[in-house]
Every structure is written in C-alpha cells, then in structure tokens.
C-alpha cells in the first residue's frame, strides 16, 4: 500500500518544481501546470490506485480560472486535490475522460456554465442550458 507521503514524493520527483504543494486543512493539495494533467492523472490512476474522480469544478478568479479535481482512492481510502490555473482569455485544459469516464458530464457542465474547453472531449456540448444560450453564467462577469 502506498502512503500519501510516497505518492507526493513520487509526484515531486517526476515533475520537480512544476508541482506546487498547497496548504489545506483537509486535503493533500497540489497545483500543477495544465499541460501535465494527463500524465499526472495517468500516474495517479495506474500506479497509486486513485480510481475515483469524485468532483471536478472550477473557480473564476477574474484574472484566471482555477480547475479543481477532488480525487479519491477507494482501495486505500486516500484523497488528493489537484488544481491547475487556466488563462482567463482562452481557458482550455486537456480532458480527463480517457482516465476517468466520469469526467464526461462534469467537463460538459464546466464548458456550459464556465466556458472552459476540454481538449479531447468527444462530445463537448452544453448540458444544462439550451444549445442557443449565449454566455457562461458562472463567470463573474456574467
């Protein structure tokens, strides 16, 4: 069984300075550049048993978007929060759908309400609002 410490060490060894460890009262939390997300997720899923992407959401900080993934390992009962900053003018991130299919509708929801594009998503359409709706309501400037 991998302890959370070995997971964090492995991540830091692989990506070094690109990984920023954030302080949080309840979660082990890291922030990484968006392009390394697929490799990071692959590692977490295949090597460290993180089989459950519980929650995927984003926050609009006006100058940037912050993606937040809450990932759990069911077999070892561990949890990790992964964050990534996205450009505010053209927010895009790689899709996690091939690693966790549950990302499908969660990414569509973020596309719909927050206007974030997920590259590699096979069916990136609005999910809650009508297709002809203009704008993204969860943005702060809406």
């Amino acid at each position: 069984m991998n302890t959370m410490q070995t997971v964090m060490e492995d991540i830091q060894k692989t990506w070094g300075d690109q990984v920023e460890v954030l302080e949080d009262k309840y979660f082990d939390m890291i922030k990484v550049p968006a392009p390394i997300l697929p490799e990071l997720f692959q590692k977490l899923n295949r090597e460290h048993g993180f089989n459950y992407l519980a929650n995927l959401t984003a926050v609009d900080y006006k100058d940037r978007f912050e993606l937040v993934y809450h990932i759990y390992s069911m077999p070892d009962n561990r949890k990790l929060a992964v964050k990534a900053d996205l450009d505010h003018d053209n927010p895009a991130a790689p899709s996690a759908i091939t690693i966790w299919p549950t990302a499908d509708w969660q990414e569509r929801e973020l596309f719909d309400l927050m206007g974030i594009r997920f590259e590699g998503h096979p069916n990136l359409k609005r999910i809650l609002l009508p297709d002809e709706f203009e704008g993204h309501p969860l943005r702060k400037d809406f």
Partner: peptide, 29 residues
C-alpha cells in the same frame, strides 16, 4: 450517493464559489 459541497470563501459574507457534486447527475451518466 456521494453528495459533495465545494465552497470557496473570499472573506466576505457570501460564498465566492459554491459547487454541488450531485450524485443524481453523475449516476445518470
């Protein structure tokens, strides 16, 4: 199922961002 609330505070009296991880939404997938 797994019902989650994600809340971000900016120090104000209202949540800066609130997200509901709704089990019904995910289960329907």
């Amino acid at each position: 199922g797994d019902l989650g609330y994600y809340i971000v505070s900016d120090g104000g009296e209202k949540p800066y961002r609130l997200h509901v991880r709704a089990p019904s939404f995910i289960n329907l997938m």
